[in-house]
Every structure is written in C-alpha cells, then in structure tokens.
Design a protein around this nucleic acid. Structure first.
Lengths: 219, 219
DNA sequence: AGAAAAACTTGACGACTGTCAAGGAATAAC
DNA sequence: GTTATTCCTTGACAGTCGTCAAGTTTTTCT
C-alpha cells in the first residue's frame, strides 16, 4: 500500500517505525535539511510570502517531498523555527566564557551584537516576523514563548556576569533587561535594513551606556 | 468613458478632479471608511491572511469597489496604516496635560498603558505586524518609520514631563526611552494574547520602576 | 539475484488570490 | 425629464496556494 493519508500523529508513527529500524538518522537528517531550506526561504521572503513550492526550489527536491516529511505547512514551519533556535540561542556564550574583565565583556558583547545584526539580518527579521505571527496564530505560540525565554536567559547570562565582573548587581529583572536589549536590537535591525547607517551607529554608541544603566555598581 | 485603467497617479488625478468639483468630501470619506474597514480586518487576521474580499465583507460594499478608490492593495493598506496613526499617536497627551504631580502622571500613564494594551490589543498587534512587514517590503518603510518616530515623540513627551515634575532629567535618549517602553508593551502584548495574565501583572508591577530608571533625579 | 520498502517526482484537484472590464444603479447637471 | 457622470456590483481572468494520489526511481533486505 502506498497510502499517503498522514496526519501529524501518523508522521510521528512513521518516524517511530524508522527509529526501530535504526534509520532514524536518515529520516531526521532530511527533515532537518528541509527545515533549514525552509528557514532560508522564510528569511528571504517573510512568512506572508513563503510558499511550499518556493521552499522546495531552495532545496534540491520537488515540492511533493515536503508532505512526505511533514504533516502540513505548520509542521514544517514549526520545525524551521526550532532550527532557528539551534543557531541563535548560544551566540554570546563564548563571549561570556572568555571575558576576563568587565570592559572586555562589554566591548565584545557590543561587537557581537552589531556583527550578527548585520551578518544575520534576514534571519533575525524572520524571528521577529514569526514572533509576531504568533500573536495571530496560536499554533506558533508555544515554540515562540520557549525561544523567547531562551533568549532572555542568554541575555541574563551576559548581564549578570557583567555585573559580577564590575562588582555590582543587575538593576532590573531578567525580563526587563531582555526586552531592553531586544528593543535596541529590533530598532537597530529596522534601521539597518532601511539603509539608515547613521541611526545604527548612534545605537552602537548608546548601547554600552544602556548596559551600564541596567547594572548598579555597589558603593 | 468608463475607463478603469488607473495607476496611482490616475487615482490622484481623479481625486484632483473631485476637488475642483467640491466633492472631495464624499470621495475621501469613502476612502477613509474603506481604510478603517481594512484596518479592522488586518487587526483581526494579520497581514499574511488578509484578502481584499475579506476586507470588503467587513464593509458594506463589494470587493470591486476597493479598486475604484485605491490603485492597488498596497495603496489600500498604506492608507489603513495612516488611519492607525490617527487613532494611536496622541493617546497619552491628555494624561500629560492634566498631570499635576509626578506620581499622578506615572500612575495614570501606567493605567493608560495597560488599558489600551487590553482594549486595543488586536490593533496593536497589527502595528507590530506591519512594522515587521516593512522589514521585508520596502513599500511600507516610509510610513512605518514616520509612525515610529511619532510614537517616540509621544513617549518622550510623557517621560520628559515626568522628569520635569520630579525635578530631574531623562537618563537616556528619546530613542532609548521609546524602545524600552515599547519593548515592555510588546512583551506585555504577547503574554496578554497568550492568556498569560500573571506575566502581564508582573510587567505592570515593574513598569513604574522602569520609568524611574529612565529618569535621574537631581541631587 | 529478486522482492519489498522507502524516497522522491509528477501532475492534478479545488480553493483562493489581486486585478479589472462590462454593465447596472444612483446621483448630478442641464 | 433627459442626458452625463459618478458610484458600485458582478463575474471573469490568470495566477498561486496547500494538499494529495499515483507512479517512478532508489535503496534495503533476504
């Protein structure tokens, strides 16, 4: 039987079958490969204009294969979002690890901040697109909230370590600190993609001071 | 002649004709009416899922009329965004005007902040949707950047007045202050629409302190 | 080797999209 | 009251969308 009546559960079953036959690697590898292709297409076109045929064209397969590995479009996009998380959520950890002084941590953080802003701009705009999409489409919310909390934790690791090195304590909650730095990033991204380099440069100048505001130095 | 070959300029011409015949009121009134219907549809469905036929169904006309008053879909949506601006950009001005003390201003600001967060949630999520869309679609950027700067000015009027009343000065640039408060709003919106009332309440508690951080009190 | 299963392609379906031309209905001009 | 003009509806167009069944190619198993 070449039955193709697969729901989400049936895809999971099929996956289970593969696991038992020790072919899970191949199946999951393709799934990931296609999810990555999806990620790049989404980053290029945005959620509103990304079609399955377009995604397939960014891979080496035809559009039909997407329904072989994914139950439906949502399943595919959700998986793509997870791939984003893998890429983006440990970005500053090396910076934290090698920081010997507060000044060094701050400088390298700022450098990394604006480096990824420019290098991964289209990937970041996708993140904000999907986070926003979750305001309309309930099916993304769980994944979005999870990634958001991981991003918050990532920022917290940076700032709390910075506070430690500078001999003080964070001046606000993890939540506040995250949304402030994320707000700076979002704004910088908007102006970067708008070609407004001056505004981006201005934000770069202000970022260290903002970090300073978020940490109180003990007297 | 019943010619319907209208580009953007021809729509403008036709409008000009009406002006000379003193019927500009009627034409513009319909345009605005349809733009408002568009705004509500967008707020309900999001940019990605809003079609012209859906918009027309939220008005009392048929879908064809949209191309009588607007050159194309972008023209329509751009006009809808302008309507959003009219509604949203003077929200806190009355609060500023009637504030007799720093404490009153702060409290009423916080109250208004979370009032509109809940009452106009779907309108606000539209704003963020469109702002994000401008990261992908150049044609929205000018309007988005303009509205964004108006929002920044609105927030600045609140905070600078607060600083005045408290006898201090703003501790950061207008840009920084705006993106901080906007970040809080965005986060609160996400959690409000996710049904996570606890997180929203937490943000409400933290908002006054955040405002405090943004203003330095003179010694 | 041949048989069975998995991986992938192709082409089609119904639904939906933005656009626009043709024509009817309403209003204004004379 | 009879033309003109404006306003609005209807229906169609060419295209795209997600989905899926049928069939071909490739891999795996025995």
């Amino acid at each position: 039987m070449s039955g193709r009546l697969r729901g989400v559960t049936e895809v999971a079953q099929r996956k289970q079958t593969r696991i038992s036959r020790r072919q899970v690697d191949k199946f999951d590898a393709r799934r990931t490969e296609l999810a990555v292709a999806t990620l790049h297409t989404l980053a290029e076109l945005g959620y509103a204009r990304t079609s399955l045929r377009e995604i397939a064209q960014n891979s080496e397969f035809s559009h039909g294969v997407l329904h072989y590995y994914f139950a439906d479009k949502r399943d595919l996009i959700t998986e793509a979002v997870r791939q984003y998380e893998v890429v983006c959520v440990t970005r500053y950890d090396e910076v934290v690890a090698r920081a010997k002084s507060a000044g060094q941590l701050r400088d390298e953080f700022v450098a990394m901040f604006f480096d990824t802003l420019e290098k991964d701009a289209i990937l970041h705009r996708l993140w904000y697109d999907l986070r926003n999409q979750s305001l309309f489409d309930e099916s993304f919310r769980a994944a979005v909230l999870e990634i958001d909390s991981h991003r918050e934790a990532m920022v917290w690791r940076v700032v709390s370590r910075y506070a430690e090195l500078v001999g003080g304590t964070p001046a606000a909650s993890a939540s506040m600190i995250y949304l402030t730095l994320d707000g700076i990033f979002q704004r910088a991204l908007l102006h970067h993609l708008s070609g407004n380099a001056d505004t981006v440069a201005q934000l770069r100048v202000e970022l260290p001071a903002a970090v300073g505001l978020l940490v109180t130095v003990a007297e």
